[in-house]
Simulated scan of single mutants.
Amino acid sequence: MTKALLTGAATVLAVAAAPLAAQDYDRSDWPESFTVGTASQGGTYFAYGSGWANLVAEELGLSGGGEVTGGPMQNMALVHTGDAAFGMTTMGPAAESLAGTNPIAPGLEMTNACAMFPMYQTPFSITALSDSGIESISDIPDGARIGFGPAGSTSDTYFPRMMETLGVDFERRNGGWSDLGGQLQDGLLDVIAFAAGVPVPAVSQLEVQTDINIIEFTEEERAQILEAFPVSEFAITADTYQTLEEPARSVSMWNFSIANCDLPESFVHAVTDVVMSDNERMMNIHRAAASTVPGNWDKNQLLPWHPGAARWFRENAGAEIPADMVHGE
């Protein structure tokens, strides 16, 4: 598994003098630089991941940044092999990767990617142009061209199955969120099915440029999805987008940042401390970071914890993480 797995690369570097607090760590075995696997530009992963990467680089005096990837499945592979120090994933793709059913490397059990900190929930939402006449899932015509995001992403992995469960007949299209937004606006797509933290930058950009419909699940549709997939109930609040006048019914999956399990304990402890100790700074990066708080450590019941992250949550959040859920303990 090499960097060739990446669908693209866009690394933003940030270097600054380390604050005094960072110098309390023994940094002798720390890497001089790091990358964070994110997803395509125009999506929440890229904005959120590049933001916290730059924050960590600045606070710890290292060179580091976010890197464009194919999303959660690819991030699990890159972090497992050490081609990326850090990444971000949703729990569905994480479960498939641990089980050896990640389509990037079928049969490889990716057990060397460890949980580091909770991020936010990924809602599943659907967007169409207002002049399309599509106002509900049942309005989506047979053979509709639906953009599901980058190949192997959380959206591409689960949303097509959800649409099939709901009886939608479609043509599957893939691409980066910004590119798909442009295709929707140009009439090359009928619908985009987003799985990304809200507000999704591509949707925010679309609604400034044209009139759109944000399509929610009906109660019956959501009940079908909840029964068939590893998701939870979610409501996209009305203040998320200008287009919404009331909360939109949805479902969601939790996202966690991940670290290569072989990274030094003190390094991962320091990174976790930077991200988790000041939520206001994270909120300035992306509003989805409202859920990036210590109390959400318990949303991971799947991935082994990195020892440095587990120590931080035990010390600062009273986390009762059992030894058998910590790598190497």
Rank of each mutant, 00 (worst) to 15 (best):
F229G: 08
E233P: 07
T81H: 08
M88C: 11
T38C: 15
A57I: 06
P150M: 14
T11W: 13
F234H: 14
I321Y: 01
A248P: 10
V68G: 05
G43A: 14
G92Q: 08
I285A: 06
I321G: 06
E246N: 08
M276E: 02
D26P: 02
P31S: 06
W30Q: 05
L302D: 02
I285E: 06
V198G: 01
R172E: 15
P19D: 15
T127K: 02
A289Y: 13
G42F: 14
A115K: 03
F86M: 07
V275Y: 02
L60T: 01
D190H: 06
V15Y: 09
H269D: 00
E32W: 15
S153P: 04
D26S: 00
R222H: 05
G318T: 10
V68F: 07
A4L: 09
D29L: 10
N75W: 01
T7V: 08
F170M: 05
E67L: 12
L206E: 03
E246F: 05
V36R: 08
S130K: 15
A289C: 11
V275C: 04
T127I: 13
P230Y: 12
S97Y: 02
V79W: 04
R249M: 11
A22H: 01
D190G: 05
A85C: 10
S277T: 04
E245C: 00
A270D: 03
S132H: 05
P230M: 14
A95G: 06
S138D: 15
G8K: 15
P106W: 11
S130Q: 13
A319V: 10
V203Q: 13
V15K: 12
P247E: 07
G197Q: 07
H80N: 15
L60Y: 01
A16E: 08
F159Y: 13
R287D: 14
A228D: 13
G308S: 04
T122S: 14
N260K: 04
D169S: 13
E280V: 09
A228P: 12
A151T: 15
D29R: 13
F234R: 11
T157I: 07
T210C: 00
T292E: 09
